[in-house]
Design a protein around this nucleic acid. Sequence first.
DNA 1: TCAACATTTCAAGAGATATTGAAATATGAA
DNA 2: TTCATATTTCAATATCTCTTGAAATGTTGA
Lengths: 108, 108
Amino acid sequence: MKEDSALKMFAALSQETRLRIVRHLVECGTEGASAGEIGEKVGAISSRASFHLSALEQAGIVTSERQSRNIVYRADYAALGGLVSFLLDDCCGKHPDVVACCDFSDCC
Amino acid sequence: MKEDSALKMFAALSQETRLRIVRHLVECGTEGASAGEIGEKVGAISSRASFHLSALEQAGIVTSERQSRNIVYRADYAALGGLVSFLLDDCCGKHPDVVACCDFSDCC
DNA sequence: TCAACATTTCAAGAGATATTGAAATATGAA
DNA sequence: TTCATATTTCAATATCTCTTGAAATGTTGA
């Protein structure tokens, strides 16, 4: 992952509504969720939800696909994994003290 | 890590100069670096370096300690590890597709 | 005490970001 | 076609962020 992409992803994740959206979409899995459902879930009116979904898409964190009247958004797991790697590796050089603070016992 | 802390850390890391500072300080280790040296390293005049160092400190990513005339900054490895955990676990629920995109083979 | 150094704080301006409600666009069904 | 639904786009406003240069603060040594 390029530094520029990481900066955009960090910026996207630094907003409460957008972080909530990401969490919800991660839970939704491959099925994803429509803009309307997402907005309702995070308590945002349509234009606000659309604004933040667009920001997340531009940052590469979510993808969108029209399905009939709805536009379905999904979390981009590869992008999120790439950001974890960037933070741990490129940014922190896998420093032992950083790794020590993470619990990877049940996932690798 | 609380969501609020994570939001502040993401915001702090979403700025080019600050990301450079963090990378430099991670390399510096426990010795840290003075504000002046950091500013020179990242190409920022004193007031600008101070502004960003203050933002990083407020976000809990670095610590500061006066040493004679200098103020020495150090990366907070525990905080950075906490953010990695937050992103991977709280935010992504250690989703297999996220974990699969990270290479943990040489650090755990 | 005084001068030099290291850093922060302040004020001002430019630019970016977030929110809202209204209007526009796109889709599907009667 | 016409209407209802889903979503985005737009304009206006408010707020936050970043940058710069100047001034203030704190520290050391002559």
